[in-house]
Lab assay of single mutants.
Amino acid sequence: VKKMAKAIMADPNKADEVYKKWADKGYTLTQMSNFLKSKTAGKYDRVYNGYVIHLD
């Protein structure tokens, strides 16, 4: 998940494709939050927020 999150950060155009894969795998927002937690607070906030919007 972190590898794909980094791919989104490097190229935001990949976001919809990645979010669809995550949704197809049934990842919940709680799971995504836990996967994307980082020592650098807020590092993956943009990715998480994008997934929230995708699921909505």
Rank of each mutant, 00 (worst) to 15 (best):
D16G: 12
V1L: 08
R46C: 14
N49K: 11
S38N: 06
A23N: 06
Y48P: 00
G26M: 04
G42M: 05
K2L: 12
F35K: 02
T28A: 02
K39A: 11
V52Q: 12
Y44L: 03
A7I: 13
Q31I: 09
Q31V: 07
V52E: 10
S38Q: 04
H54S: 05
D45M: 07
I53T: 12
S38P: 03
V18C: 06
K21G: 10
D11F: 07
K25I: 13
T30R: 11
T28K: 02
Y48N: 02
Q31P: 00
D56C: 15
K2Y: 02
G26L: 05
K6W: 10
M9V: 06
N49G: 08
A5I: 06
S33N: 09
K39P: 09
L29W: 04
P12R: 06
V47R: 00
K3W: 11
V1M: 06
A7C: 11
I53N: 13
A23R: 10
D16C: 13
Y19F: 08
A41N: 11
G50T: 02
K25G: 06
Y27M: 04
K39Q: 11
G26N: 06
K14D: 03
T30S: 13
G26E: 06
V18K: 02
E17V: 09
T40V: 11
D16Q: 14
K43T: 07
R46H: 13
M9P: 01
Y27C: 05
G50Q: 05
K43S: 05
T28R: 02
P12E: 08
I8L: 07
G42K: 06
Y19T: 01
D56T: 15
F35M: 13
Y44P: 00
T28I: 04
L29F: 06
K3C: 14
K2M: 08
N49T: 10
K14G: 06
T30G: 11
K6I: 10
Y48S: 00
G42S: 05
N13L: 12
V47Y: 06
V1A: 05
K3Y: 08
Q31E: 11
N49C: 14
D56E: 15
V1E: 02
L36H: 01
K14N: 09
L36D: 02
D11S: 07
F35A: 07
D56Y: 14
T40Q: 11
K2R: 12
F35D: 03
H54F: 15
K43W: 08
Y51L: 03
Y27K: 00
K3I: 08
Y19V: 01
Y44K: 02
V18Q: 04
A23D: 05
K39G: 12
M4Y: 07
D45R: 08
I53S: 11
Y51M: 02
R46M: 14
V1G: 03
Y19M: 03
S33Q: 14
A41K: 14
K20R: 13
K3E: 13
I8F: 03
A5P: 01
M32C: 07
I53W: 09
K25S: 14
T40C: 10
K21D: 13
Q31R: 05
D24V: 08
W22C: 01
R46L: 14
V18A: 06
I53P: 01
G50L: 06
K2H: 05
T40R: 10
A41Y: 10
D11H: 08
D56A: 15
M4E: 14
T28V: 01
L29D: 04
Q31W: 06
A41C: 11
N49H: 12
R46A: 15
D16W: 11
Q31H: 08
S38M: 06
Y48G: 01
A10T: 09
K21V: 13
N34K: 13
V1I: 14
A41P: 15
L36K: 00
N49Y: 14
T30V: 13
K21L: 15
A7K: 11
N34F: 14
A15F: 04
F35V: 05
T30Y: 12
R46V: 14
D11Y: 08
Y19D: 00
A5W: 04
A41T: 12
G42Y: 06
K2W: 04
I8W: 01
V47P: 01
N13H: 11
V52G: 07
D11R: 05
A10L: 12
A15Q: 07
D24R: 11
L55D: 01
S33M: 13
K6H: 10
A23E: 08
K14T: 09
K25E: 13
K3Q: 12
D45V: 07
D56R: 15
K14Q: 10
Y27W: 08
K20I: 08
V52D: 04
E17F: 10
N49M: 15
Y27Q: 01
V18L: 06
D56I: 15
D56H: 14
K3L: 11
H54Q: 03
N13I: 09
H54C: 05
W22F: 02
I8E: 01
Y48Q: 03
V18F: 07
